[in-house]
Design a protein around this nucleic acid. Structure first.
Lengths: 212, 212
DNA sequence: GACGCTATCGCCCGAAAGAGCTATACCCCT
DNA sequence: AGGGGTATAGCTCTTTCGGGCGATAGCGTC
C-alpha cells in the first residue's frame, strides 16, 4: 500500500459549500486524501472512529453538537487525535477553549490554500499550528480576567432582563450575593453598568446570540 | 459564440475556501461559468463593472465594505443586476436589508448543490429566490417593531455603558429626550431594562460584535 | 499551613433608571 | 386635512442599581 505517506483527512463542516471548497483545495495535493466528510459533531465522531484519519479539519461552530464538544469527544476517544479547528468569526473564547481541549491548531476560513496545506503537514508532523493573528488574539485573551461559571449564570440573568432579586430567586441565593457577583462581573469586564457588561459578554463570546 | 445560453457568474466572498467550494460546485454544471472572483466589496464592484456577470453570488458579511453596501453599489451602477446573497449566520436584520436593497435572493451557505444551482437559474430567469426558512424568518422580522436610526444611536450608547446623561451629551439632546428614546427602545425590543435591550440588539443584528 | 480565588451573606447610601403622564413639531403618506 | 411615526422636551415618583465598607467558608495550589 502506497498510503503510508499519504495524509488521510476527515472534513467536518455543516456548510456543504465549505466542505466542497476544502475538498477541492486539498485534492490539488497528491499527498492529501479526504477519506470522509461529516456535517455535524455526532457524524464527526462516527466517521472519526470508522476511518481513524491522520488529520481532522473541523469547523468550530455547528448546529447541534458544536465543534468544541466534538473535539473533546474525539480527543477522549483517541488522545493522540490530530484536529485542526476552523473558524469564520474570530470569536475569542473559542480559540482558548479549543486549545485547552487539545486542538492541534486553529485556522480562519480566510486562510490561503498554501497556508492550509502547510498547516495540515505541520500538525501531521506532530506540531501545533497557530497563525500569528490568533496568537495575538490569545495573548489579549490571556490578559482578560477569568469570569467564573457562576458569574456567567448571573450575566445570563442580566441578559434576560432580570433584576438582581429575580436572579437571586432563579439561582436560589440571596440578593446580596447576586450584587456581589454583579460587582465582580462589572470589574472583570471593565463595564460601567450591566448593559455594557452584557455587550462585553457578547463581544467576548461569553454570551451567544443563539441562546448560549 | 455559444455563450448566449451560458450563465456568467461573479463570486464574492472573503473566504478563499468558500470561493473554491462555490467554484467547484458550479463547475459541475456546464451551463454555469465563473467569470470572476472578488474577496471584498470594493473588488466586487470593480469585477462587476469589468465583467457584467449574469448572476453575482455574494457573501453578506465581509471585512471592510460589507456585502450589503456592495450590493447597493452594484444595484446603483446597474439596476437590473441579479445578485444572490449568501449568509452563514441567519442574522435576521441583514435579510430584510438585502431584500430592500434589491437582492434577487438569499441563501444560506449550508445550501445543497442542487438548491444552489436551482437558485441561480431561478434568479437568472428574472425571479426572486427565497428559501422557506428565510421566508419564515422574514415573516417574524416583519412582526418586529422598527427601531429608528436615532434609537439605534441611543442603544449603542447603552451598549458602551453610558448613562442617559452621557448619551444626551454625546448626541447633544436633553436627558429627557434620551429617556424617551430609551423607553421606546425597551418597548420595541420587549425588554425589561437596558441590559436586556442590549442583548436583544445583538440577537437581532442591530448591534454587532465587531463594533457596528 | 498560608495564600488566592470563589461563593456566600450583611448594611448604608446616593445616583440612576424606569414607569406614568403630557406636549409640541416635523415629515411622510394617504 | 388628517393620521402615524419620530424627535424633541418636560414633570413626578418609586424602584433599582452600583459604590463603599465589611465578613465567613470552601477549595485548590504552592
Amino acid at each position: 500500500m502506497a498510503q503510508s505517506h499519504s495524509i488521510r483527512i476527515l472534513l467536518v463542516d455543516d456548510h456543504s459549500v465549505v466542505r466542497m471548497g476544502l475538498a477541492a483545495v486539498l485534492s490539488l495535493d497528491e499527498e492529501l486524501t479526504v477519506v470522509a466528510e461529516a456535517e455535524d459533531g455526532t457524524q464527526a465522531l462516527e466517521k472519526f472512529r470508522a476511518e481513524c484519519p491522520d488529520v481532522t479539519l473541523m469547523d468550530v461552530r455547528m448546529p447541534g453538537i458544536g465543534g468544541l464538544e466534538a473535539l473533546r469527544s474525539i480527543r477522549a476517544a483517541s488522545p493522540a487525535a490530530c484536529v485542526l479547528m476552523l473558524t469564520t468569526s474570530e470569536l475569542d473564547e473559542d480559540v482558548q477553549r479549543a486549545i485547552a481541549a487539545g486542538a492541534a491548531g486553529y485556522l480562519q476560513k480566510s486562510v490561503t490554500r498554501e497556508e492550509l496545506v502547510r498547516a495540515i503537514r505541520h500538525v501531521h508532523a506532530g506540531n501545533r499550528y497557530m497563525p500569528e493573528a490568533m496568537q495575538r488574539r490569545l495573548a489579549q485573551l490571556a490578559k482578560r480576567k477569568h469570569v467564573s461559571s457562576r458569574e456567567i449564570e448571573v450575566l445570563d440573568g442580566m441578559r434576560r432582563g432580570l433584576s438582581n432579586r429575580d436572579i437571586a430567586l432563579a439561582l436560589s441565593i440571596s440578593e446580596h450575593t447576586v450584587k456581589a457577583h454583579v460587582k465582580a462581573i462589572l470589574q472583570k469586564l471593565e463595564s460601567a453598568d450591566r448593559a455594557e457588561a452584557v455587550a462585553r459578554g457578547f463581544e467576548q463570546g461569553l454570551l451567544r446570540v443563539d441562546g448560549q
